[in-house]
C-alpha cells in the first residue's frame, strides 16, 4: 500500500499500529503528522510555548501508540478524542511544571508498576524491595554503552515489538533466534550493570 503521501483514516492507522509489521514506525509517523495541527491550537488555548506544546504532543502520541499496541485503547471513543484528551493533560502538566515546579499530574508509565502488579502480593513486596527506581537511570546509561545491535534489540523490546517483529526488522531467521539473541543481550546488560554497582 502506498502510504507515504496519504492522510490515512483513523481505522487504517489503528490497523497499521496493531498489525505488528515493520511498517509500524511509518504508521506512528502518519499518526503524528495527521494531528500535528493540534500543537498550534494548544499554543493559543493553553498559552504555552511552541516547544512545550511540541513536547507535550510527542508525549501524547507516544502514549496513544503504547495504548493502541497494548490494546488498552479499546476504540470506545474516536482516536482524535482520545489523543486530544491525553494531549490536553500533557499541556496541563507542562503549565504546572512551568508555573509551580510541581510534579506532573499525568505521569508516563515506566512499565514498572504494570510488571509488578502481575506478581502476587507477597512476592511483589519482596521484588519491590530489590528494585531501586533510581537504578533505572543507571541501567539506561549502561544500555547506551552496549553494542549497536544489542542496544537496538533491547530498545525494540522496550518499544513493545515482539520477537517476530524484531526478527523481521533486524534480519534474524526466526523469532526464536531473535529471542535468544535478545536474552543474551539482556545478560550482557546485567553484567555491565552489576559491574558498575560493584555487584
Amino acid at each position: 500500500m502506498f502510504i507515504f503521501n496519504k492522510v490515512l483514516k483513523d481505522d487504517a492507522l489503528l490497523q497499521g499500529l496493531q498489525a505488528g509489521t515493520p511498517q509500524r514506525r511509518l504508521y506512528e509517523n502518519k499518526l503524528y503528522e495527521k494531528y500535528h495541527y493540534l500543537v498550534r491550537e494548544a499554543c493559543f488555548k493553553h498559552k504555552i510555548s511552541q516547544d512545550d506544546a511540541e513536547s507535550a504532543y510527542s508525549d501524547a502520541i507516544l502514549t496513544v501508540i503504547e495504548h493502541v499496541v497494548s490494546r488498552r485503547f479499546e476504540g470506545r471513543s474516536e482516536l482524535k478524542t482520545y489523543l486530544t484528551q491525553i494531549f490536553t493533560n500533557k499541556c496541563v502538566d507542562s503549565i504546572r511544571k512551568n508555573t509551580t515546579n510541581k510534579a506532573e499530574v499525568h505521569t508516563n508509565s515506566t512499565g514498572l508498576e504494570d510488571a509488578l502488579a502481575w506478581l502476587p502480593d507477597e512476592t511483589q513486596s519482596a521484588v519491590r524491595k530489590l528494585i531501586v527506581e533510581s537504578e533505572i537511570e543507571t541501567l539506561q546509561q549502561r544500555l547506551r554503552a552496549l553494542g549497536d545491535k544489542c542496544r537496538e534489540m533491547i530498545l525494540a523490546w522496550g518499544e513493545g515489538y515482539t520477537d517476530e517483529e524484531i526478527a523481521q526488522t533486524m534480519g534474524y531467521n526466526t523469532a526464536a533466534v531473535a529471542k535468544t539473541s535478545r536474552l543474551r543481550c539482556l545478560e550482557k546488560l546485567k553484567e555491565k550493570y552489576k559491574s558498575s554497582i560493584g555487584g
Binding site: 509488578l116 521484588v127 528494585i131 544500555l143
Partner: peptide, 14 residues
Amino acid sequence: FWVQARAAAQAEAR
C-alpha cells in the same frame, strides 16, 4: 533485574 531492565528499555526507547 528483568523488571528494571524492561522499564529502562521502555524509558530509553521512549
